[in-house]
């Protein structure tokens, strides 16, 4: 696309570009292959191997890891197999935690992005800058700070109690609500920035046209603005949902680590007592498959919509 626009005059540049293209892409492919594809392949292979006691793998083909994920054979491992709810519960818990955090981020992020995009052009950069400032600090530090804010004896409860809104401290820390707040706060800019990019490109004369044709404000938002900025909204949702799904800092620090999330379950297989590498690899593969399926479903209508424009 870009090459076509840039070389309308002669074809020689295009030929040179086409010839060089493969070589120019080599570094990207090498990095992707080495640091993304190869590790995923290692995990894929490990998930079909036999576990070695206390970490490691034995090079014998085995489906034991997937069997453990899907079938429950009781505490002693010799009962009749029934459907394994343990890991399904863990996955489901992670999915709705991440989903709720995404909805929260969208509810706050969309108006924020819209507001920024409708400021005078020369001040927009400043607003975006302000949004990103907290994110110059490491995620761990921010999560720990959040913990101090939400504590039973923390500033939030002090404020609520001194204003007389509540008599006893609200118990937020070590609950699911704290986890959702943590995830939402951690990934909010990933929602704001893509939506802002979409809204900024939106031609506001279309809203005016809609108003001239007696569309209500709500109808204008729903039928004119939202379809136009949908790619930004979808991108924002993916960027918040996917990292929230594998998060383990917020569940550990804010949720009290009482219930495994996908991230902590997998971590436990490699770093914890269990030392079950094939099972950790299998759980990662199942998670990867889930995320890929969701992305494919979301990306497909996206692509055809893009083709129409």
């Amino acid at each position: 696309m870009a090459s076509g626009n840039g070389t309308t005059g002669g074809s020689s540049t295009t030929d040179v570009y086409n010839k060089a293209r493969h070589w120019l892409l080599m570094p990207s492919w090498a990095i992707l292959g080495t640091f993304v594809l190869a590790p995923v392949c290692v995990m894929l292979i490990y998930s079909f191997l036999t576990k070695e006691f206390r970490g490691g793998v034995i090079w014998d083909f085995s489906l034991a890891a997937y069997d453990q994920f899907f079938f429950d054979r009781g505490l002693f491992g010799d009962g009749d197999p029934t459907l394994q709810w343990t890991y399904i519960t863990i996955f489901w818990r992670s999915i709705w935690q991440a989903g709720l955090a995404t909805v929260l981020a969208l509810l706050i992020g969309f108006p924020t992005a819209y507001y920024i995009a409708t400021r005078p052009e020369n001040t927009r950069a400043l607003w975006v800058f302000l949004i990103t400032i907290p994110y110059w600090v490491n995620l761990l530090i921010r999560t720990v700070s959040m913990k101090f804010l939400l504590r039973d004896e923390g500033p939030l409860n002090d404020l609520l109690m001194s204003t007389g809104l509540v008599d006893d401290p609200l118990r937020i820390i070590n609950t699911n609500l704290a986890v959702q707040l943590g995830l939402f706060y951690s990934y909010l800019p990933f929602m704001v920035l893509p939506i802002y990019a979409s809204v900024e490109r939106y031609n506001f004369t279309m809203s005016e046209a809609a108003a001239d044709l007696y569309a209500s404000k709500w109808n204008t938002l729903r039928r004119i603005v939202l379809p136009a900025v949908k790619p930004g909204v979808v991108a924002g949702c993916i960027l918040v949902f996917v990292p929230s799904l594998g998060a383990f800092l917020a569940p550990d620090l804010l949720g009290g680590a009482k219930n495994f999330m996908i991230g902590s379950l997998i971590e436990e297989q490699f770093k914890g007592n269990a030392g079950n590498w094939p099972f950790g690899a299998a759980a990662s593969m199942i998670l990867l498959t889930l995320v890929m399926s969701v992305l494919l479903i979301i990306a497909r209508p996206q692509r055809s919509a893009g083709a129409k424009i």
Binding site: L75, G77, T86, T89, I90, A257, K258, N259, F260, E268, N273, A274, N276
Partner: peptide, 9 residues
């Protein structure tokens, strides 16, 4: 290990 997983589930 299974008891621990049950506990943290």
């Amino acid at each position: 290990d299974q008891i621990w997983t049950n506990l943290k589930n």
